[in-house]
């Protein structure tokens, strides 16, 4: 090997022995451990959702869904609504009636108390619609109601106004 070739070979060895003096991945922030806090936030959110599902009651019916009862259904067999209100039975002139749920105690649904608490019985009162003076029920009118005496007198008074 000639002298220039030896020098060239020495230069190549020197070239290949050069190393970057630092950890480049560290300098760029690539080797840092990922942040843990997103996991903690996700865990806390999941725990909150689970707790909310357990504690909050979810069995209340929608307000527009009025419960119905059969005409011959006994009052004790009627499932009470979750909120106080009025339940109107199919009305006939022979037996007008309405069920008024005056108070329905809230059922505790906590898992610790649900097993020990007996389902409270709602306080029911069976009332006749004649005892509810301010209550007007549209379906109480009979098919002959437009020809009734009350309707005829009202129509006459209206005609007098004109």
């Amino acid at each position: 090997m000639t002298r220039p070739d030896k020098q060239l070979e020495a230069a190549r060895r020197e070239y290949q022995n050069a190393h970057y003096p630092h950890d480049l991945a560290d300098q760029l922030g690539l080797s840092a451990s990922p942040r843990r806090w997103p996991w903690a936030v996700g865990l806390a959110a999941a725990a909150f959702l689970i707790a909310a599902l357990i504690i909050l009651p979810d069995s209340s019916p929608a307000p527009d869904q009025a419960p119905t009862i059969a005409d011959d259904q006994p009052a004790d067999a009627i499932t009470p609504p979750d909120a106080p209100g009025l339940v109107v039975a199919p009305d006939t002139p022979q037996s007008p009636r309405a069920l008024v749920f005056l108070h329905v105690p809230r059922v505790k649904t906590s898992p610790s108390t649900a097993l020990r608490t007996r389902h409270p019985k709602p306080h029911l009162r069976l009332l006749s619609t004649s005892k509810l003076p301010s209550l007007t029920l549209p379906n109480r009118r009979s098919p002959q109601s437009p020809n009734s005496q009350e309707s005829q007198s009202w129509n006459a008074s209206y005609a007098n106004l004109g």
Binding site: Y15, A18, A25, L30, S31
Partner: peptide, 21 residues
């Protein structure tokens, strides 16, 4: 990031040699 760091560590010396030359 771990894979990127692995590639960077494998490439840093060839890069440095080339840039130094």
């Amino acid at each position: 990031r771990k894979a990127q760091a692995e590639l960077i560590r494998q490439l840093q010396d060839p890069w440095y040699r080339c840039c130094l030359a």
